[in-house]
Computed example of a mutant assay.
Amino acid sequence: MDVDLEENIFFDMDIAVPLGIIINELVSNSLKYAFVDRDNGRIQIKLCRAESRKSKDNRAGNNNEDLISDDFILTVLDNGIGMPESLDLENPGGLGIQLVTTLVDQLEGKVELKRDSGTEFTIRFTVVEKK
């Protein structure tokens, strides 16, 4: 297990809980399915800030407050046997992947699946804070 988390990233519960469940589900899937008939393998979890932007909240009643938008990228990957080509993230068959896609939608994020050498899930999402 290799974990690479950017320092000084803090999320409120509305972000932290879905992220924790997503990571748990993807790592669990790797442990269950990726390393069949193998004695070892590698799972990586990466979380980093991609970009920060400032803007104004111009909605009525918000006093034109400053907003900070931070884009984040969460990557969970393994060097296992890979996901079957039949897996469609738009219509996942398994309950675990359905849960992941539902939570990514809750975060208003996007999920991408690569099957090159193992399995790599990349989740991009934005967190908006008032400053």
Rank of each mutant, 00 (worst) to 15 (best):
L31A: 11
G20N: 15
K46C: 03
G20Q: 15
V27S: 06
I21K: 03
N40S: 15
M13A: 15
A60W: 09
L47M: 08
L19Q: 04
Q44N: 11
F35Q: 07
N8Q: 14
R53A: 12
I15D: 03
N58L: 15
L19P: 00
R49S: 07
L31G: 02
S30C: 12
A34E: 06
A60H: 10
I9Y: 04
I9N: 04
D14P: 04
D2M: 09
D57W: 05
F35A: 08
R53P: 00
R38M: 12
D4L: 14
A50V: 09
K32T: 14
A34N: 02
D4N: 13
G20P: 00
G20A: 15
N29P: 08
V3I: 13
R49A: 04
N29Y: 05
L19N: 04
I21C: 01
N29E: 06
V27L: 06
D39K: 10
E51W: 08
F10P: 00
K32W: 05
L47Q: 03
N24Q: 13
R38G: 06
K56S: 13
Q44P: 00
F10M: 12
I22Y: 01
A50Q: 13
N24A: 10
D4R: 11
M13V: 10
P18Y: 00
I43H: 01
M13G: 11
A50P: 01
D14F: 08
L47D: 03
F11I: 03
E25D: 11
E7M: 10
E7Y: 09
L19K: 05
F10K: 15
S30W: 05
I45H: 01
A60Q: 13
E7P: 13
G41D: 04
A50L: 13
N8C: 12
V3G: 02
I22V: 06
L5R: 03
E25T: 14
N29F: 02
S30D: 07
V3H: 03
G20Y: 11
A60C: 08
N8H: 14
S28P: 03
V17D: 13
I15P: 00
L47F: 05
R49P: 01
S52L: 07
E51Q: 14
P18I: 00
L26I: 08
N58D: 12
